[in-house]
Design a protein around this nucleic acid. Sequence first.
RNA 1: AGGGGUGUAGCUCAGUUGGUUAGAGCGCUACGUUGACAUCGUAGAGGUCCCCAGUUCGAAUCUGGGCACUCCUACCA
Length: 886
Amino acid sequence: MTNPLNPRYDHKEVEQRQWTFWEQGSWFHADENSRKEPYTIIMPPPNVTARLHMGHGLNNTLQDMLIRWKRMQGYNAMWLPGTDHAGIATQMMVEKSLESEGLTRKELGREEFFARCVTWKEENGGLITSQLRRLGCSCDWEREVYTMDEKLSRAVRSVFVKLFRDGYIYRGERLVNWDPKLGTALSDDEVESIETKGSIWHFKYPVENSQTEFVEIATTRPETMFGDTAVAIHPEDERYKHLKGKQVILPFTERRIPIVFDDYVKPEFGSGCVKITPAHDPNDFALGKRHNLPLINIMNEDASLNELVPEEFRGLDRFEARKLVLKKLKEQDLFVEEKKHIHTQPISERSKVLIEPRLSKQWFVGMKELVKPALECVRSGELSFYPENLKKTYFHWLENIQDWCISRQLWWGHRIPIWYCSDCPEVTTGEEDPTQCSHCGSKKITQDEDVLDTWFSSWLWPISPFGWPEETKDLEKFFPSQVLITGSEIIFLWVARMVILSHYTKGKTPFKDVYFNSVICDKLGRKFSKTLGNGIDPLEVIATHGADAVRYTCLSLAPLGGRVKMDPSDFDHGSRFVTKIWNAARFLHSHLESLDENLKDFDDSKLDLPSKWLLNELHDTTKAINDSLTHYRMNEAVELLYNFIWKTFCDWSLETTKDELTNPSSKERKEEILSILVYVFDNMMRLASPLLPFVTEELWQSLPHHPRLDRPESLVIAAFPDAKKLLSFKKESLEWTFVQKLVSGIRSLRSQAGVPPKEKVQAFVKTGKENHKLLQTSISSITKLSNLSHLHFAEEVERPKKSLMGAGLGFTVYVPVSQYLDFEKEKLRLESEKKRIEQIVKGLHSKVSNKDFMARAPEEVVIQTKEQLENMESQLKEISENLSSL
RNA sequence: AGGGGUGUAGCUCAGUUGGUUAGAGCGCUACGUUGACAUCGUAGAGGUCCCCAGUUCGAAUCUGGGCACUCCUACCA
């Protein structure tokens, strides 16, 4: 029989095969009728336009690790996948493709354009979800949803109508972030701030009834002057107090505008006088409200100047108008100076053009009231954040919440279900499209042209996929979910709003915990971004290193919150780990080959020390991993797993049993060793399955069934190890640790003397009687592991001539190394060791002799410290004696 | 300007509620292996836990101040 495993792990082949196997088994599908306790995660839906990036990689691996862990623990685990229709992003994609046909969306018309968007999604929208599958995401793919699905759209419609009828939705004239290129309002979150070098221009407005007096104002946007309705000055500014009650004349127009006093103005900035343009600046808007100033909107939708400006400026683009204004000011001798000025400008995230604050009619959701339960559930601890400090950010935003502008002047999205009546001023809404005005009955009604902000469908994500407003079984079972895993950048945009909406519709908090994953940066600490081109493509790394390696590296690097610096070479670490596991399994198989019958169970009462130690380590690690995962300390769980597999299992256990497996004392003994190793390995595969699902499934399938363990069809539904059901040998484990320390001590002496590894040496161990039995039973292990010819041990041992000495916890060991001994080197070594221990002893001594310490420190700490001191002192004594004898 | 975070080995970072001789991976050094391991193992070098002060019997950990970096929010007429 040959080894069933290839010399090398072929991740590509295995991933494909195992994925198909899982899909056929349908193990990721959760039954809504199951009696098992549900455990739900709702996936933050990626944009349909998205392609998998490392942020998705990290975010989804985190979710997958949790859901797989819970599934193996026997929960009715359901991870809901889906995509978001991404209003602006999709519309832009489709417009781009129209552009190549020489078409615009307006030429195409609304309906046709909408149809194109639908087609686009059908053709390209599946990409991201297939990429998530390649990563191994064990979502309930049969439940996959899309925010434009009929079911979800109905939920959008329902909640809009409900909010409208409850009086939360209103139409208002507000300043919005206007994207002149896309011709739509944007939310604050769709606006980027970019620092730019610009200018600030100073010029003069003449004061009325005076030939000589002017106020000097400063602005970065001279073209907005036609919308000015006041000039503002700080009330305490001595320079201008005499201007109280006066008006100034707006150049190029006949308009007189008042001088108002408001402490919003900073006297030290510019000239201390500010032109006020309420219709085109948020601060001015607020100030205008305080002083009852009129609003003059001077711009068209494309940011060209409209008919309210003097004729020569009409129709000019804002930047053209700026030039002309400056030119004319100079001609009229009103221009003072131009200064260089660095300021941050709002740029549209999508179209990259300068945002223009613009007065327009938009639909809003009044948030002040809705927010209350969302604040309360976090305050009360019903909803927890990981890391906790993000609560502060959350509170700050909710406590200062602004009403939410939900209308977008786009065609792709959920159209606002509002109908205007041409015969009366009222509007009509409803779950179904109305045919007549609900107030006057007129049939002349037209629907609002706008669509809803994409986030208006996103905030329904905890309930809409399950059929809300219907009271479905799914909704009952899978809402609320357990944990939301997402990035902290959308804490307001999405997280807070879902909490708000779930309380509004269902009166419940939509999840128990929110885990905020880290932001991925390059080695220089810069965020991965398309423009910088510094990202790492997860699909490329999956192709070269395998999905498991990608998953391992992502999670091992990523602590809670914060940032993680990632370099392509980090993924080598992941592959190495996978390869190590693969090879350990190959090693087991090479010995299992000779086994001609089924694996027998091992006898608990006949276990030797190293086996008990290994089983105890399995117990402790299992407990620790479960504990770490419970507290969302994923990187900690990953590290525990790594250390157990690599250090404990491979470096110690496989090494200690290697010789015996090759030359077993009996067939039974070999079977026993293999039984233990396979048992532990099987458990290891279970522990690792949530993190490394592919390679573990492959190896687990290849192993013989251990009689002590369940053997379902697939590892993904095998029971996750539970420490309570595992053997533990605390005492024996400590004993074996003593042996390990002794072995390390001997190895260290050998190495320092330069004794070739193949050469056998003797070792003389001086240790208390209590350890003798232990050494006696471990004599062969120690001999093998330290390559000894003889091991001597006794309570009193005289130092052999020409030997090196080492001291450890509870023992002193001498290794004669006559031909390698360098007295000077040994002296130096012992002296430095002596110095080091003296320092420790000194520290411990001062502690113990400190009355306050003895009185106030907890008893166990005192005992521990005393023991330590005793031990260190005896080590020191041994070293000193040896030094003097040299 | 306000808020959050970070500062631990050459690099990337762990270090849970104050008590270990402060850890890991990569890199580095020496030796060994190439019969589980395009390797792996063994042994090692390397730290003022940013600085200052305080609380405490005891501080990498808590408090205050400073320095440096970073993210978020707002504003910049």
